[in-house]
Amino acid sequence: MEKFENLSGIAAPMPLVNIDTDMIIPKVFLKTIKRSGLGVNLFDEMRFDRQGNEIEDFVLNKPAYRDAQIIVAGDNFGCGSSREHAPWALADFGIKSVISTSFADIFYNNCFKNGILPIVLPQEAVDVLMKDAEKGANARMDIDLVAQTVTTSDGEVFSFELDSFKKHCLAEGLDDIGLTMEKASAIDTFEASASAARPWV
């Protein structure tokens, strides 16, 4: 996985609450056996009409936001299915961070496996960032992973919380299966005692 570098990018405002994984990547695109190439179908039903033409007023179709790397979204972003195709599609499109007041649990975890930083901030902060994002392409937002801050185009700074292990993996681009395998002996020991205690498992 690529390391998450500090980011200075355009943020697209998506104030809608409960943006679910069916919106992020509709199920017709889940029939792939690959991880790549889903960016063209990101938000497909909101972005394109049935003939495949772009829907002009959808935010990522507006000239100012076509190169957005950040999404500022309403509450409960990523709710619904566990499909990792959602962060795959976001990452493939070029989105590196999503900011909201809350995320669905599975989606939140999935982001970190794909180099995306989901940032949780209180409503007041998200409101300010949403306004900033609405300014368009000239307003770049800065995200500093190490310092755990988001800075608006006006220089206003918001700090966010982040689990230290997740931060470490994201910053270093670590493969967590490899990390876990280093603890194989702990798993072996646990497995042996668990199967003695609960042989029916």
Partner: peptide, 16 residues
Amino acid sequence: HGIGTSEVEHVLATQT
């Protein structure tokens, strides 16, 4: 509980 595909791979490989 539900997990994403990277976690599916993690469980397949490590059972954790």
